[in-house]
């Protein structure tokens, strides 16, 4: 604790600035001008109720519009609409690696995703191809450790992985959650 005497010893520029410089409504001059603490009769009793009533009516209009617009419902009745279920674009299921028609993926085994992962979910195991070039051998993804944070997808410079839409992951076998994402090893 600093006593007032100690406070006067330190020069003003070195005093700790715990409070803001602008004291706002605490000075008498500011208090006289401050309309926040003491609104005028017009502002408090005439303007505020009218503006407030209009804003309340605006809010009621918005909720009524939502009520009447039946198609605006976002609820998915899941087990019934399982076949036609569409997930929102930002949904984050498990990490998947898309493959094109020839069964090729875009991964270059750069291991940026492995480094971006905060809990060691991904292990990229590279291998050498015939041309002695580093290509992806196995892309091991441990779903039981994944928190679906999507940091790996953001780290990937080649769009080789993305977050899938699948969410029915219940299983009794923990080992089945460790999976290899690429379909074939190596690449020419």
């Amino acid at each position: 604790m600093t006593t007032p005497d100690q406070h006067q010893d330190t020069p003003p520029q070195n005093r700790p600035q715990s409070r803001p410089q602008n004291m706002g409504a605490f000075t008498p001059e500011a208090q006289a001008e401050d309309t926040c603490t003491k609104p005028s009769f017009y502002a408090y009793f005439i303007k505020r109720p009218i503006v407030g009533a209009f804003s309340l009516l605006t809010g009621m209009g918005i909720t009524l519009k939502t009520l009447c617009n039946v198609t605006s419902t976002v609820t998915q009745e899941y087990p019934e609409n399982r076949d036609t279920l569409t997930m929102p674009p930002a949904f984050r299921g498990q990490v998947i690696m898309p493959h094109d028609e020839e069964g090729e993926h875009k991964c270059t085994a750069c291991t940026l995703c492995e480094k971006a992962c905060p809990n060691g979910t991904i292990s990229v195991l590279p291998m050498k191809n015939i041309a002695n070039k580093k290509v992806l051998g196995k892309y091991i993804y441990r779903f039981d450790q994944c928190t679906l944070c999507s940091l790996c997808v953001e780290a990937c410079p080649f769009d080789a992985i993305r977050m899938g839409n699948d969410f029915e992951h219940a299983t009794v076998d923990k080992d089945s959650l460790v999976m290899v994402l690429n379909e074939k090893e190596g690449r020419l």
Partner: peptide
């Protein structure tokens, strides 16, 4: 039911 509809939900179904 109305609360659900006001909030773009379905309410009890």
């Amino acid at each position: 039911k109305l609360a659900g509809r006001f909030q773009r939900r379905l309410g009890p179904t």
